[in-house]
């Protein structure tokens, strides 16, 4: 009986979600169908290509310098996520475990820094990067992304850490563990879901960021994916849409897979992080 009730609910759930799902999937359909059109058909208003031109993906790879851009994106996103977490975890730990002078100010600093978007700061940021001698280095982008990720990471982690009972660490101390051991063996495993979510957020923001990369990166060798793909449509005398769409499609696959895989952590982690 309950099975059929669930079946019924499934049907109307899918029906109710269908408009949104159509809207969400529409750009993907545009991407993949355009990517598979023979170049001569790209401008025609048809949906289905006369033949599936898989070669587009191969020619795109060479024509768009895709491999290098993909590697740059992976490098920048991963490294900035690691740096943001390494800086944010101790800070969040301190915020959730101790009272100290300046704590409120630090909290406010984090909140305010969330409001400053890269585009508002880009003129100043660029001067800073030049001062550091990092122009056209992907490392400049790494540092900026990491710094912009810190505020959110601390905020997320701190509220989650606060839900982990202090007794657990203290119990470990009593059993003879050093604080570091207690931290690593007891505390961090418990905090893992929140760290996964935080990492995912930072990673995605870095993966998708546009304005900073556009300003800091000069050569195609250092371009990240969004910039590389944007450069295929911006101000060119002719745009090869089948390549653009093929590149966009391939660029979304890695994140889409990570997403599908970590999606359940995401909800749990945010739930705990957000309320407190």
């Amino acid at each position: 009986m309950s099975l059929s009730r669930k079946a019924k609910r499934s049907i109307w759930s899918w029906v109710a979600l269908s408009p949104l799902i159509v809207l969400v999937l529409f750009p993907f359909a545009v991407m993949i169908l355009t990517a598979l059109k023979p170049p001569s058909e790209v401008l025609r208003q048809t949906w289905i290509p006369s033949e599936f031109h898989w070669r587009n993906f191969i020619t795109m790879w060479g024509a768009t310098n895709f491999g290098k851009a993909l590697w740059n994106s992976v490098y920048v996103s991963t490294l900035s996520t690691i740096i943001a977490l390494i800086a944010a975890i101790p800070a969040a730990y301190a915020m959730s475990r101790y009272r100290f002078r300046g704590k409120g100010a630090f909290q406010q600093f984090l909140l305010v820094s969330q409001m400053l978007s890269p585009i508002v700061l880009v003129i100043g940021l660029f001067r800073l990067v030049v001062w550091l001698g990092l122009v056209d280095s992907t490392n400049s982008v790494v540092i900026v992304y990491a710094a912009f990720g810190i505020a959110f990471s601390v905020w997320m982690l701190q509220s989650y850490f606060a839900t982990i009972p202090r007794d657990l660490e203290e119990a470990a101390w009593i059993e003879g563990a050093t604080p570091w051991q207690a931290l690593i063996r007891v505390f961090l495993p418990l905090a893992l879901p929140a760290m996964v979510v935080t990492a995912l957020f930072t990673f995605i923001n870095a993966w998708n960021e546009f304005v900073i990369a556009l300003t800091m990166l000069r050569t195609q060798d250092s371009y990240t994916l969004p910039i590389q793909i944007f450069s295929l449509v911006a101000g060119r005398y002719t745009v090869e849409w089948h390549h653009v769409m093929a590149a966009t499609f391939v660029a979304t696959i890695p994140v889409a897979i990570i997403f599908a895989w970590l999606q359940r952590y995401l909800v749990r982690g945010l739930a705990l992080g957000a309320v407190k």
Partner: peptide, 16 residues
Amino acid sequence: VPWDVLFQKLTTDISA
């Protein structure tokens, strides 16, 4: 540099 952003890049470059 994509033509659309060339002027912006030159400006930021020079400003720094």
